[in-house]
Design a protein around this nucleic acid. Structure first.
Lengths: 185, 185
DNA sequence: GTCTATAAGAAGATAGAC
DNA sequence: GTCTATCTTCTTATAGAC
């Protein structure tokens, strides 16, 4: 990898972490470049503007989501078990969720009210999960509409748990509630 | 009411609305004062700083929450019905929730990651509902710990619905899901 | 109490030296 | 490619006239 590509990747990784931990709006170019030990003037050599960084992050995350889903599908062909693997993700990430909330939910929420351009960039991450969940519910014999409703319902439950866990800093709640959601599947 | 008090109330009402619709961070003094047709230089005559406006809003909302709860308690002494009235609130506010999310959830989330001072100001609104829900679950014969868990669980479900409804702009989902939550109570 | 004008600071973005 | 310095814009907050 060339030096330029290397720095670009460093900026993306640092931004991804900071956008999650502090939020997009509260993360400045200074924060990002300080984290990787370069001067902040550098950032616009690698990215035209802040929005382009977000796009880079979403691309990166979408690829990671695809890989995660592929792993779940390789682990089992049982759709009910796959849905449980989806829920398990929240348990695996419990520490980060308690501290920072859901990485998808908090980012998308930050944009949904009044930043339509950024919202459109971030939304596909959510949609990917929604569509995959609906597909798995269809495999369980549900019609396409009901399957999508069930997908939304599961997304909703998991987002609620992440949100309340984060707001009340209560990881015990996360564990109990996710287990209960898994059982009800 | 004196003129000063009148203007102060106007600022609080306008801020309350804008903080909900645009978010706290994205609402400027200019936005607020433009909404009520006064010069923006005026604002610090009535409030020391932006944080004080937030405090005023939270005070106002806490009073409204108390009144709402009192109304629910007057409507029925059946705790299960009271819990359903809590859920019904989301249905009554469906239009706003679709557009702007939950007024409590989105505000608290905005602060929870990296603005601890503002977070502490906003949190009591959530706690009020949590404690009241737990009290009602206790009335249904549950022990104090289980009652609190059930309160968290209901808060979580409702927050999830509000969040997903807002992010996907899907009011139909809200209606179906809240009705389903009510039935399961 | 409200106005206009402005200070002070932060953030995104640009320019030119090295 | 990275640095330092600077520009511009926005926002909170202040000062003084009316």
């Amino acid at each position: 990898m060339k030096q330029g590509e290397k720095t670009k990747k460093l900026i993306l990784d640092a931004s991804n972490e900071l956008f999650y931990q502090k939020g997009y709006g509260s993360t400045s170019f200074g924060d990002i470049m300080q984290k990787i030990g370069l001067s902040k003037g550098n950032i616009t050599y690698h990215f035209k503007n802040k929005e382009e960084i977000l796009k880079g992050i979403v691309d990166k995350r979408l690829k990671e989501i695809s890989i995660t889903i592929k792993l779940w599908e390789e682990q089992t062909s049982d759709s009910k078990k796959r849905l449980r693997l989806f829920c398990q993700m929240i348990i695996d990430e419990q520490e980060n969720i308690e501290k920072y909330g859901c990485p998808l939910g908090t980012l998308t929420s930050e944009f949904s009210k009044h930043k339509p351009k950024l919202y459109k960039i971030a939304l596909p991450m959510f949609q990917t999960f929604r569509e995959w969940l609906a597909k798995e519910y269809q495999s369980l014999g549900l019609g396409i509409n009901i399957a999508d409703e069930k997908a939304m319902s599961l997304l909703s439950k998991v987002q609620g748990v992440a949100m309340v866990t984060h707001v009340f800093k209560d990881r015990d709640f996360l564990l109990k509630e996710i287990e209960s959601i898994k059982k009800e599947l």
